[in-house]
Design a protein around this nucleic acid. Structure first.
Length: 717
DNA sequence: CCGGGATACTATCAATCTTA
DNA sequence: TAAGATTGATAGTATCCCGG
C-alpha cells in the first residue's frame, strides 16, 4: 500500500519518517498513492482522503489500523451535502482516456441495452462513485457526446465471433496425434466442408492424408468427433446472439433513419433557399454544411480512438494468435487471429491453393450466378481491344473523391505527464494521457484499377494525350465512391464525411431510397472495428479521379497467416497441380481459368446488354455518357450482380439528378448489400486486421470471398 | 528557433428548461 | 416536484501563426 502525505499535514516530516521506519511506502505524487493522507482538522478536504492519524494509530498499535475509520472526505463528490464546499472545483481538467471511455461504456451500455435511463444523471452518479476521476456531469457529457457514437462492444460481446474462427480450445486429449494447428485449420474450414457433398469431400481428405502423417480415417474422425461438435455449438450461440444484435440494430437504424429524414427535410429547405438567395445566404448555408461535416468528423474521431485500441489488441493477438493461439492463445487472441485467417485463407485459396486448401471448399451460401458469369463473360472478351474502362483511368470522368485522413485537421493533444508536484487534491490526478496515434493506413497494394480488357459492354472512352490508358474526363459526372462518408451514420462506419465530398451529393445521397433498414449486419462494435477506409486526400479541391481503383490484388505477395497443414502449403500445391485437375471442393469458386461455354458467355453478354439498354431507356432524359458511367460503376461495384446493380443505379441516378446543380458529385452508396465501395475493396485488399474485420462485418465472409474472386477475375482481364 | 498572442477544442460546472 | 435533459459560460490546454 502506497501512501501520499499532504503538505498540510502537521509535522509531516515526522510522520513521513516514522511511516517509513515502519515499512510504509511513501510516494511523492498523489497519483502514485493508494491512500491519500491529509489533515483531518482542515475543512473541505477532498473526497477519498484519509486522516494522517491512520499512520499514527497504526504505529502505536503496531498493526494496521482500520483505514475506513480515518476517512476524511466523502467517498465522492456525489455524496457531498448540498451547498458544501467540501469539494473544490476541479482546477485541472482531466482528459478522457480510452480506458475512461471503455469504463464508461461498460458501465452505461448494459443500461442502454436494457432500456434504462442511460441519459439520466443517476447512472453517471453511480459511475462517479465507482470512479471519481471525472464528475458525473463529465461522465454523462462524455457518454452522450462521444462514447455513445463509438458504439463499443460490451465485454461479453467480445467473445462473440464467427463460428468459423478457430477461437476454440482443443485439448490434447481430444486431438490425439493431431496438432492444434491441424484442428484449428479444420475448424476454419468446417463450414466449407459441410457445404460439400460427402463424395466431394473425399479428395481433400485424401490430400490431407497424403500430405500429413494422418490417415483419411483419422482426419475424418477428427472432423466428426472433435471439430463438428465445437463448430455446431459455437455456430448456434453465435446465431442467437447475432440475431438479437441485428434486431436491436434494426431498431436503432430505424430511429436514426427517421431522424435523418427529418434533418434532411430541413436541410433541403435550407438548400433551396441558399440556391435562390444571394451569395451571402448561400455562403451561410455552406458554412452550416461544413459544420455538420466537422461534427461528423468529430464523432468519427472518437470512433477511431476506440478503434485504435481494438486494433492494437487485434494486432497483438495476431502476433501470438496466428501461430500460437491455437495451442496456447486466449479465446480472444484466437478469435482475432481466426477472423483474419478465415478471410485471408480464402484469399490464399483463391490464389494458390484453390484446389486443395480446405478453405477453398465451396461456400455454402448461394453464390450469385452473376458473379460466376462475370468471370466467364469477362474472359470471353479478353482478346478485345484494351479499352481502358473508367475503372482504370486516373482521369476518368468518374470522380472518386478520397476521404481525408480521419484526423485531418484535428489537433492531437499530447498530454504531458509532468512530474511537478502540485499541492494537490485527489481530483488533480496527473495522468499521462496516451494519445494513440491512428494506425497508419495499411500498405495498400497497388491501388490500380482493374484493367479489364475492353469488355464490349464498356463504352469506349476517348483517351487523353499523355494518358494513354486514361480516358479524358468527358463527362462532368463525378462519382464518389467515398460513400462510407455519407452513410457512416447509419451504417456505423467510421469513415467520416469527407469535407471533400460535395455536400450536396452527400445530402442527396442521404435521401436515396432503397436503403434496406436491416443492412448493417455487422455488429456495431464501436465500430470500433470499423476503420476509416484507406483514403487519400483530395488536394486543392480538385476533383478526385474515381472509379474503382479496384486495385489489383497482389496475390503473389499476399502474406497469409493461416497455419499451413502439416507438410506445408507447398506440398498441397504440388499435389494440386499433379492430381487435382478438377478442383472438386473448389468447384464453386469461379476459377479464372475456367473457360465458359461460348453459349453461356453470349447469354451473359446479352443479359448485360439488355440490362444496360433497359437502364439507358429508363434514363433517356439524362446525359447518356453519365448514365453509362453510372451503369458501369454500379455493375462493377456490385460484382455484376444485376439485381443489386439495379438498386445501386437507382440510387446513383437519384443522387446524380439531385447533385446536378451542385457539381455532379455522385456517391456510390455503401449501404446496399452487395455494393462495394472503393473503401470496401481497399479494406478487402488490406493486410490490416481492422480493415479486414470491418469489411468482413459489413459484407460477410462469403461476400468477401466472392468479391475477392471477382476482383481477381476482373483484374486478370 | 523561440516566445507570445490568437484561436480552437473540450472538460467542467451551473443554470434553466422539460417531463413524468 | 424531482429527475432528467439542455444550454451556455468558464477555463485549461494544444496548436497555429507571426514577428523578432
Amino acid at each position: 500500500m502506497k501512501f501520499w502525505l499532504s503538505y498540510s499535514v502537521p509535522q509531516r516530516h515526522w510522520v513521513l519518517e516514522n511511516a517509513k521506519l515502519h515499512g510504509a511506502e511513501i510516494v511523492p505524487l498523489e497519483k502514485q498513492a493508494d491512500v491519500l493522507l491529509v489533515d483531518h482538522a482542515r475543512k473541505n478536504q477532498p473526497p477519498g482522503t484519509h486522516s494522517f492519524r491512520f499512520i499514527e494509530r497504526s504505529i502505536r498499535a503496531g498493526a494496521l489500523a482500520n483505514l475506513d475509520d480515518h476517512a476524511v472526505g466523502p467517498a465522492s463528490r456525489v455524496q457531498r451535502p448540498v451547498g458544501s464546499r467540501m469539494t473544490a472545483p476541479k482546477k485541472a481538467r482531466t482528459p478522457f482516456t480510452d480506458a475512461d471511455d471503455q469504463l464508461l461504456w461498460d458501465h452505461v451500455a448494459p443500461c442502454m441495452r436494457a432500456g434504462g435511463n442511460w441519459k439520466g444523471n443517476e447512472i453517471y452518479k453511480q459511475l462517479e462513485q465507482l470512479n471519481a476521476r471525472h464528475t458525473f456531469q463529465s461522465w454523462r457529457d462524455r457518454f452522450l457526446k462521444h462514447v455513445v457514437h463509438q458504439r463499443r462492444r460490451l465485454p461479453d460481446q467480445e467473445a462473440v465471433s464467427d463460428a468459423r474462427t478457430p477461437a476454440v480450445v482443443f485439448s490434447p486429449a481430444e486431438l490425439g496425434a493431431f496438432s492444434a494447428k491441424d484442428a484449428s485449420m479444420l475448424y476454419v474450414a468446417a463450414r466449407d466442408i459441410l457445404a460439400c457433398s460427402p463424395a466431394d469431400r473425399e479428395v481433400p481428405w485424401a490430400n490431407f492424408a497424403r500430405t500429413t502423417s494422418h490417415s483419411v480415417h483419422d482426419w475424418k474422425a477428427l472432423f466428426n468427433d472433435v471439430i463438428l461438435p465445437k463448430y455446431h455449438s459455437r455456430a448456434r450461440s453465435n446465431t442467437a446472439e447475432e440475431e438479437a444484435e441485428e434486431a436491436e440494430e434494426a431498431n436503432d437504424k430505424e430511429a436514426e433513419e427517421a431522424e435523418e429524414a427529418n434533418d434532411k427535410e430541413a436541410e433541403e429547405a435550407d438548400d433551396e433557399e441558399a440556391e435562390e438567395a444571394d451569395d451571402e445566404e448561400a455562403e451561410e448555408a455552406d458554412d452550416e454544411e461544413a459544420d455538420d461535416e466537422e461534427d461528423a468528423e468529430e464523432e468519427d474521431d472518437g470512433e477511431d480512438d476506440g478503434e485504435d485500441d481494438d486494433e492494437e489488441g487485434t494486432e497483438e493477438a495476431d502476433e501470438e494468435g496466428t501461430e500460437e493461439a491455437d495451442e496456447e492463445g486466449t479465446e480472444e487472441a484466437g478469435e482475432d487471429a481466426g477472423e483474419e485467417e478465415a478471410l485471408k485463407t480464402c484469399v490464399k485459396c483463391l490464389t494458390t491453393h484453390s484446389h486443395q486448401c480446405p478453405n477453398s471448399l465451396p461456400r455454402p451460401e448461394p453464390v450469385s450466378p452473376y458473379v460466376r458469369r462475370v468471370g466467364q463473360f469477362e474472359s470471353q472478351h479478353t482478346a478485345g481491344s484494351p479499352t481502358p474502362t473508367v475503372d482504370s483511368d486516373p482521369f476518368s470522368p468518374i470522380e472518386r473523391p478520397q476521404t481525408p485522413p480521419t484526423l485531418l485537421g484535428k489537433r492531437k493533444r499530447v498530454h504531458q505527464d509532468s512530474n511537478i508536484e502540485i499541492p494537490p487534491t485527489p481530483d488533480q490526478e496527473q495522468h499521462a494521457a496516451t494519445i494513440l496515434q491512428p494506425p497508419s493506413p495499411p500498405p495498400l497494394q497497388s491501388p490500380q484499377l482493374p484493367h479489364r480488357a475492353s469488355p464490349p459492354f464498356i463504352r469506349e472512352r476517348e483517351k487523353g494525350g499523355g494518358q494513354q490508358d486514361s480516358p479524358q474526363p468527358t463527362s462532368p459526372l463525378m462519382v464518389s465512391l467515398v460513400s462510407d462518408a455519407i452513410s457512416s451514420f447509419s451504417s456505423g462506419s467510421p469513415t467520416e464525411a469527407s469535407s471533400d465530398v460535395d455536400s450536396a451529393s452527400l445530402y442527396h445521397f442521404d435521401t436515396a431510397p432503397d436503403q434496406p433498414a436491416n443492412w448493417d449486419t455487422a455488429p456495431d462494435d464501436g465500430s470500433p472495428d470499423f476503420e476509416t477506409a484507406p483514403t487519400r486526400r483530395r488536394e486543392d479541391g480538385a476533383p478526385l479521379r474515381t472509379q474503382p481503383p479496384v486495385p489489383a490484388i497482389d496475390l503473389a505477395n499476399a502474406d497469409f497467416d493461416l497455419p499451413p497443414p502439416d507438410g506445408g502449403w507447398d506440398s498441397l500445391d504440388d499435389d494440386d497441380d499433379d492430381e487435382l485437375e478438377e478442383p472438386v471442393l473448389a468447384s464453386d469458386h469461379r476459377s479464372p481459368s475456367a473457360d465458359p461455354a461460348p453459349d453461356e458467355a453470349t447469354q451473359d453478354e446479352d443479359e448485360y446488354a439488355s440490362w444496360k439498354a433497359k437502364h439507358q431507356a429508363a434514363y433517356s432524359g439524362l446525359n447518356q455518357d453519365d448514365v453509362d458511367t453510372i451503369l458501369h460503376v454500379a455493375i462493377v461495384a456490385t460484382s455484376f450482380n444485376f439485381d443489386t446493380a439495379d438498386r445501386v443505379v437507382k440510387v446513383m441516378v437519384e443522387m446524380y439528378r439531385a447533385g446536378k446543380s451542385a457539381g455532379h458529385v455522385v456517391v456510390v452508396p455503401d449501404n446496399i448489400p452487395g455494393c462495394w465501395t472503393m473503401e470496401d475493396d481497399d479494406c478487402l485488399r488490406s493486410d490490416h486486421t481492422g480493415y479486414l474485420k470491418r469489411v468482413r462485418r459489413k459484407h460477410g465472409i462469403a461476400s468477401c470471398e466472392e468479391r475477392i474472386t471477382f476482383l481477381h477475375d476482373y483484374n486478370q482481364e
